[in-house]
């Protein structure tokens, strides 16, 4: 789950937004929050989150914080090339998701890791 900041601000925006519009949803977020672009059918609109949803990681910069997609094999990640948790069927080892483990390690299905 991801924590969309609920409630409505004075401008009629979703709680975490700084500015928003009818068609695009959130355009800018309140400080420290991440803007995430959600797709719903043909629509794509902005929401402001405290932490990015599964499959995305947060990048911070002086003027904006974005949610960016992880690599396809990651369930959650630190950055595009470093996974924190793998999708079903692959095992985590030092930030990489692989279907088999390096020599000396065995796959653990409960932890989805090479141990």
């Amino acid at each position: 789950q991801h924590k969309q900041v609920t409630g409505v601000s004075s401008q009629g925006c979703q709680g975490g937004c700084q500015t928003c519009s009818v068609y695009n949803g959130c355009l800018t977020c309140k400080p420290k929050l991440f803007i995430h672009l959600e797709r719903d059918g043909m629509r794509q609109f902005g929401v402001c989150l405290a932490s990015c949803p599964n499959g995305f990681y947060g990048t911070r910069s002086p003027d904006r914080n974005d949610c960016i997609k992880c690599g396809s094999e990651c369930d959650s990640c630190f950055n595009r090339n470093f996974c924190l948790r793998c999708r079903a069927g692959s095992y985590l080892h030092k930030g990489k998701c692989t279907e088999s483990c390096p020599d000396g390690l065995v796959p653990s299905d409960t932890m989805k890791e090479c141990v």
Binding site: Y23, M42, Q44, F45, G46, D66, I68, K69
Partner: peptide
């Protein structure tokens, strides 16, 4: 017809 948020067209962002 598919909508793209203006921020989805930046180098860092990706459209899914």
């Amino acid at each position: 017809l598919m909508q793209s948020h203006p921020l989805s067209l930046c180098n860092t962002s990706e459209d899914d």
